[in-house]
Amino acid sequence: MNTATASPLTSAATWSAHLDDRPVAIAVSASLIAVLGGDGQLLILSAAGAILDRVTLPVAGLVAAWSPDGRLLAVGGPTGAAIWTATNGLVPLPGHGWCAALAWADAGRLAVATGRSAHVYDAAGATVPVLSWQTPPAASTVTGLTWLRDGRELAVAAYGGVTCFTKTRPKPARRFDYTGSLLDIAASSDGRWLVSGNQDASVHIWRTRDGDELEMSGFPGKVSAVEFHSAGRWLYADGGDQPTIWDFAGTGPRGRQPAMLRLGGLVGSTRYAWHPQEPLVAAADSIGEVGLWEAPSLAAGELNAPQVTLVAAGEPVTALAWFNADALIVATEAGDIFFLGTSGA
C-alpha cells in the first residue's frame, strides 16, 4: 500500500474558478469536472480549469454523477433529473419528482430517485437515456440508491428500510427493514455489506447474505452520508459533525470501534471524498481546512488528527472531490473552486 501521507498535494491552487452559487456537489470524470450549486447552477470545467459550459437546473440542485465511461453527467433536483452531454447540453429526463440520489451501474444503466420510486434508464450507447423500468413506490421519497450484484439488483432506501429490486421481477428481491428514516445507503464492492445512515443519528449495517444486522447509535447528529472506499474494506460515515471511519475487514465491524476524524472546524456531510484508489479519505471543514487520513493507520475509538492538513480556502468548504488520483477539488460556500494539484505538476 502506498504511503499516501507523503502525498505531494499542495495547498497552493493550480487554478481556481467561480460558481455564482453555493456548491453542493462536485462530480468528476477522467477529464471533466462538474460543480453543481444549491440554486441549480451547473458549471462544467476542463481539467485545466477552462469553463466548457454553464447551465441552470430548474428550482435547485441536489446531486450530480458521471456515467462510468464519462460521457453523460446526471444531475438531480427537487423536480427531477437531467442529463448533460457535451453535444446536447442539459436534457431533462421524463420522470417528475424529488431526485436526491443517482446511481450508475456499468453498461450505462442509471438509477434515478424520482419521488417515491426509482427509475432505471438505459443509456448504453445513447446520448438520451431511455426509461427501462421503475420500482413501485416506497414508503417515502427515495433517499438513497446503490447497485448490487454487478448492477443486476437495485437497493432503494426510504423511510422504513432498504428494498432491493431486479428488472425482471416486479416484486422486491430482498428487503432489509429498519423503523426509521434512512438518509443514505452504501454497499461494499463485494456486495457483502449494506449500510444506511439514519435521521435518528445511527448507522445500520446488514450482512446481505443472511440479513444479520448491527447498529451503531449515539452519533452527535443525523448520519446523512455513508460511503465505502472502492476496495470495500473501509466505510466513511458522517454523524452530525463527527465523521467516522469503520473497518469491515474479515468478519465485519461487529465489536469494533470506528475511528473518529478530527478537523479544526465543523465537518458536514458533503465535505469528504475517498481517494479513487488508495484507502485515503479527504475531509474539509467550516473554516476551510482540508485534511487527509489514511484509513489503515487510524486509531479505532479515538479522535484522529489529519496526517496532512491543507489550508485551502479560508472559508467554509461545501463540496470536495478527488480528480483522478492526484488532485483535489475544493469548493467553498462563496462559490470559489480550487484545484489542488501535485507540487511537481
Binding site: 421519497t141 423511510y159 426509521g180 435518528d200 445511527s202
Partner: peptide
C-alpha cells in the same frame, strides 16, 4: 406530500 416519520424510539 406529507411524509410522517416515527423515530425509532
Amino acid at each position: 406530500q406529507e411524509e410522517i416519520f416515527e423515530m425509532n424510539n
